[in-house]
Every structure is written in C-alpha cells, then in structure tokens.
C-alpha cells in the first residue's frame, strides 16, 4: 500500500511539477511534456508565437507597401531630376551657343563699325579734298572748262580785254576832245 501511495504522489508531484507556468517542450522531460500538452501551455506558446509572427508579418506587409510606394516615388523623383537636368543642360548649351554667337557678332560689329568709320573718313577726306580743289579752282572763278576750252577762254578774254581797252581809250580821247 505504501508503495502505491508513494508512486501516486510521485506521479502527482511529477504532474504538478509538470504544470505550472510555461513549459518549454525542449525541457521538462515526460511529465513536463504531459503537463504542457494537457495544460495547453504548449499550445499557448505556439499561439503566442503565431500571434507575434502575425503582428510582425502585418508590419512587414506595411513596410513592404511603404517600400513600394517610396521606391515608386524615388524613381519618379529620379526621372524628374533627370528631366530637369536635361532641360538645364539643354538650356546651358543654348546659352553657351548664344554667348558664342554674341561674341562673334560683337567682334563682327566691331569690325563693321571700324570699316564704316573708315569709309566715312575716306569719304570726308575725299570731300575735303574736293573742297580744297574747288577753293583753289575757285581762284579760277569757276570757269569750269576742260583743257582745250581753257585755252579758248584765255584767248577770248585776251581779245576782249584788248578790244575793251581800245574802246576805252577811244572814248576817253573823245571825251577829252569834247572837253576842249
């Protein structure tokens, strides 16, 4: 009888020992096992873990979704930046071209101005020269004649002077005669 009681109490103790709190299926031996199995603590443990995993999975999904969004955003932003950069590059190329053109035109205009100033100078010089020539020719009282005609003009003048002198002398003589 005593043996039975001892054994039974041992089993009970074992069982009791097995129950109570978390039982890790990796330990606790047979009794722990029985306790865990029957007490449901093994199940609870699994359930706990499953719930935790569920939570984590939910967070993971969220994070994945976020990641997806952010990645889309990022690639869109990158595309935009590339676009903007391309625009800026194109514009800078235009500006560079314009600057080049402007400097070419500027130097061309500078050269043109010089040429025009020169032409103007030459023209003015020509006109001055002509005026000088004219003023020295004005001394000819603008007879405006060609070479052969100068001779003719000269001769006409000489003859006219001689004839007038003659007439003048004659008239003077007559006047003096009349005065007598």
């Amino acid at each position: 009888m005593r043996a039975r009681t001892v054994l039974l109490s041992l089993v009970a103790a074992g069982l009791l020992w097995g129950c109570g709190g978390q039982h890790d299926p990796r330990s606790g031996g047979f009794f722990g096992g029985v306790a865990g199995l029957s007490g449901g603590s093994y199940d609870n443990r699994v359930k706990e873990r499953e719930a935790r995993l569920e939570e984590l999975r939910a967070t993971q999904a969220q994070l994945d979704a976020e990641k997806g969004q952010l990645e889309t955003q990022k690639s869109a932003a990158q595309a935009k930046v590339s676009q903007d950069q391309a625009k800026v590059d194109a514009m800078q190329a235009d500006i560079a071209a314009l600057e080049k053109k402007t400097s070419t035109l500027s130097s061309q205009q500078g050269a043109d101005q010089k040429r025009v100033a020169e032409l103007q100078k030459r023209l003015d010089g020509l006109k001055t020269g002509m005026r000088k020539q004219e003023s020295s020719l004005d001394a000819l009282e603008g007879s405006g004649l060609g070479d052969a005609e100068v001779d003719l003009k000269r001769q006409q003048l000489e003859k006219q002077r001689d004839a007038l002198r003659k007439e003048y002398d004659l008239l003077m003589k007559m006047q003096m005669e009349l005065a007598k």
Binding site: A139, L140, E141, S143, D147, V150, K153, R154, L157
Partner: peptide, 8 residues
C-alpha cells in the same frame, strides 16, 4: 585744268 591765275 592746272592752276591758271592768268585767266583770273
């Protein structure tokens, strides 16, 4: 013509 002061 060349200067012709004589004509003047």
């Amino acid at each position: 013509p060349a200067d012709d002061q004589y004509i003047v």
